[in-house]
Design a protein around this nucleic acid. Structure first.
Lengths: 257, 257
DNA sequence: CGGAATGTTGATATGCCTCAACTAAAGTGG
DNA sequence: CCACTTTAGTTGAGGCATATCAACATTCCG
């Protein structure tokens, strides 16, 4: 857990500037921001830190005094069960605030970790609360963000409870790809998704062996794939149909795909 | 769908007064309310309606202009799948606001229905937004409410993905009972839960036949039961242990059970 | 270069689903 | 109020999807 503050100054400035822009961009995906809102965001104190793959930055039971903002990389929330098993709950891209709930709920009921190497900014709750007082519309934008999170959780309940292995896996790939695309993180029908097969199983409620049977099956359909830490979409319509994927629940601006 | 407005006046007044008290009580379960917050709540326009069992009051695709507040009875959120199957997502007791997300997310991605007969109050979004402007702390209390909802969704992901049938069912009973108790809705170790076995299966991602095998199995442990639309807790410690139930995620004030 | 993490594949077991037939209860209309 | 219809609950037989266990290949990383 190295803080970027210990790096060379130019790099730090660059990273911090990016972080503001990334948050602004993300909130604009679903909310209208006035100039004043943007100004408030730029007034927030951001401290960017780099994390290695599999490093936790929030743990179940913590009482954080700051909220995280993903600047780059992929992070995930997960429950830790008694038997040591993990249940991954959601994945978060650049611009996401994977622990914004800690603003109003004292104790973390889950952990958050980096999946691959990731940069995460930390924003003091006090800064956010002060900004909310001055600009309620900024609070509403972040509230909306947490509500979309909830919609993603709901979809995960349905996905893991009501869909067979293949469509279930396809649905998760659709979701990550669609959200990546909305955030401008895709290229050539691919996006980064540094998820191991073990983790994929722990997200979908499947055994590792099953993941290793279903993923090649999905590959063979020619619709899409997950390989070398990247999602590859070969035929979006086919993949979405296979997954019964309807992006409405993401509440993003509709865009052709 | 009969509006209580068509009933005799005294009944209406009684119901409306109850509804305010119920919301105030509920928010106090996790948030501190100042006198001014309570006054704002009492200034909201509430319209109470009665619903029959299985009646929807919000539908997937709707763009509601008012938020619902459960006054009595049990309601549930659910996804409707292409094949007509339902996936129940969460259950809501008196005091809950099962569609508060509609305040900031335009279109409903799920439906809400009454499970048994239920009374539900409707609060115009405009009223709520105006109250939020005057009392940000009230907005934060309701925000917190939506964040606890999200925690319940997360737990459902874990429950339906990582637990076998018996503990899974036990966990849901624990949750509903624990929340009922926090809201003062239990008596003699029982609480109302007008859920059919079919619906129980559609909440837990289990086939009806499986529910009909696992429920008697749970009954035989002597820990708890669901019968005639009521949850019966015979041995809380045993039930909670069986379910691996840890109420932390509900973020309520801890209370001995 | 060695060890750990990740990915692959096969054999076997089993929990849960599907299908089906039936009972019991509840609600409805004559 | 009773016959009828519908909904809810029960139970059995059989099959299949997915878990579990195990051995091994591969890649990553220090």
């Amino acid at each position: 857990m190295r803080s970027i503050l210990f790096r060379s100054a130019p790099l730090q400035r660059e990273a911090v500037i990016d972080a503001y822009a990334i948050l602004i961009r993300k909130l604009k995906e679903h909310s209208r921001l006035q100039k004043e809102d943007v100004a408030e965001i730029r007034g927030l104190t951001l401290t960017v830190r780099d994390f290695a793959a599999n490093e936790d930055f929030v743990r179940q039971g913590d009482r954080p005094k700051a909220s995280a903002l993903v600047v780059s990389g992929l992070v995930a929330r997960y429950h830790l069960l008694r038997n040591g098993r993990r249940q991954y709950l959601s994945f978060h891209l650049a611009g996401d605030m994977p622990d914004s709930q800690a603003l109003f709920v004292d104790q973390m009921d889950h952990s958050v970790c980096a999946l691959g190497p990731a940069s995460v900014a930390s924003i003091p709750h006090s800064d956010l609360m002060a900004a909310f007082q001055r600009r309620p519309s900024l609070a509403f934008a972040i509230w909306r963000e947490t509500l979309i999170d909830a919609a993603i959780f709901r979809e995960a309940i349905t996905n893991n409870s009501a869909r067979a292995a293949l469509p279930r896996m396809a649905h998760l790939l659709c979701e990550i790809y669609y959200r990546s695309r909305a955030s401008g993180l895709t290229a050539d029908g691919t996006c980064a998704a540094p998820i191991t097969l073990q983790q994929l199983g722990e997200a979908l409620g499947m055994a590792l062996a099953s993941v290793n049977r279903v993923l090649p099956e999905l590959r063979q359909t020619g619709a899409g794939d997950l390989r070398n830490g990247r999602i590859v979409v070969r035929n979006w319509d086919k993949l979405a149909k296979l997954a019964q994927f309807d992006p409405g629940y993401l509440h993003l601006k509709r865009q052709p795909l």
